[in-house]
Design a protein around this nucleic acid. Structure first.
Length: 114
DNA sequence: CTCGTGACTCCCG
DNA sequence: TCGGGAGCCACGA
């Protein structure tokens, strides 16, 4: 498995309960700002194997990308269980629920070195 | 090796 | 606002 893939897994597992992030951010944190599409694929193929909180990943607009009947409802239910609120009934307010692993002297996310 | 395929994003008109 | 198009890239067939 490639480093990027491992990083994606690590980043997703690091998302705290009650917070969400976007595919693009996960990709960026994993070291590939252009790898958003890969992230979606990993969720699809590795979520069970690595027990990932896949539901905490939404698109850049703060919405669930899954179509209804294809996981939308399940994801939304899981998020609401954690306290995430859908404003307007469809989108998540990033200013409140976005997970920001801001660089911190010690609390930095375990992103590998370039 | 090449090709199709996305639970994405960004940029324009 | 909204939709279309192009960029991107790992992975399985």
């Amino acid at each position: 498995m490639q480093r990027f893939t491992q990083n994606v897994v690590a980043v997703i597992q690091a998302i705290p309960k009650g917070k969400v992030t976007s595919y693009g951010r996960v990709a960026a944190l994993a070291g590939n700002p252009r790898g958003a599409r890969q992230v979606s694929r990993y969720l699809h193929s590795l979520s069970e194997k690595y027990d990932l909180p896949w539901h905490r990943v939404v698109n850049a607009a703060g919405k669930i990308s899954l179509p209804k009947g294809r996981g939308y409802e399940q994801q939304r239910a899981l998020l609401e269980d954690e306290g995430v609120v859908f404003s307007g009934s469809r989108s998540i307010d990033f200013s409140v629920f976005l997970w920001e692993p801001v660089s911190h002297p010690d609390g930095q996310l375990m992103v590998p070195q370039p």
